[in-house]
Simulated scan of single mutants.
Amino acid sequence: MTNIAVFGANGTIGSAIVREALRRDHRVTAVVRDPAKITGRHADLTVTTGDVLDPRSVTAAAKDHDVVVSAVGGGDGPGHLATIRPAAEVLTEGLRTLGARAPRLITVGGAGSLRTPDGKQVWDAPGLPDFLLQIMHAHGDALDHYRTVTDIDWTNLSPAATISPGDRTGVYRTALDDLVTDDDGNSTISVEDYAVALLDEIEQPRHHRRRFTVGY
């Protein structure tokens, strides 16, 4: 049994991660700004107030946990430039305070910086709206920050180009910095199978201090 703290636990991706962790009999602390928004109850679920942009709050939430997951800004979160990159900096700052007792950090990343089969990046596709490009580049900036961090055991998990609620199949493929696509060039993953991949990484760590991605 692993003790897991999840920031952004009431978002679409964060709540799926919580459900998958509880399904596997882990202990979960949901760290949210408004605990009243967590309506489900479970014997292994604790709900606490926390702020991913406050290093002292991060330290307090992370203490005595094995893994911290940040699902803030994972596609349905509070935003982009004002949250995603600053949260990356605050998370690492808050965990550093715990020194050798710092838990592993796993963060929900973005697909924008992944390489496409033509050698470009997802965010280079024509016609993408500005708000989406802002979110993509904010995730890219956060990843750039994590890649400078050598004293925290971090992992960044980028979804496929399209992620949405769907079925939990437990089947997926992974890559490192290249977009996972099917034979028709589509890149998709359900929120549920994204959560499966993230929990698999918690239980069987393979990607220390690097990004990987998941898709069908």
Rank of each mutant, 00 (worst) to 15 (best):
M1F: 10
T2W: 12
N3S: 15
G11T: 12
T12W: 05
I13F: 12
A16E: 05
R19D: 14
A21E: 01
T29D: 08
A30D: 04
V31R: 02
V32A: 11
I38K: 10
D44E: 13
D44H: 14
T49N: 07
V58F: 05
V58H: 03
T59Q: 11
A62P: 03
D64T: 13
D66R: 12
A71D: 04
A71I: 12
G74R: 01
G79D: 09
L81R: 15
L81C: 00
A82N: 14
T83D: 12
P86Q: 10
A88Q: 03
T92W: 04
E93A: 12
L95A: 05
L95S: 05
L98S: 03
L98Y: 04
A102C: 03
R104D: 03
T107V: 15
V108P: 01
G109E: 05
R115Y: 15
D118V: 04
K120Y: 00
Q121R: 15
Q121N: 11
P126T: 08
P126F: 08
D130T: 13
F131K: 13
L143I: 04
D144S: 14
H145S: 03
V149D: 07
T155R: 10
L157H: 02
L157Q: 10
T162C: 00
I163Q: 09
I163S: 02
G166E: 02
D167P: 01
T169E: 10
Y172G: 02
T181M: 12
D182I: 11
D183A: 15
N186T: 11
D193E: 03
Y194A: 01
Y194G: 00
A195Q: 07
L198C: 05
L198P: 01
E201F: 02
E201Y: 07
E203L: 09
R206W: 00
R206G: 15
H208W: 00
R209E: 07
R211I: 04
R211V: 06
F212N: 01
F212W: 13
F212K: 01
G215A: 06
G215N: 08
G215Y: 02
Y216P: 08
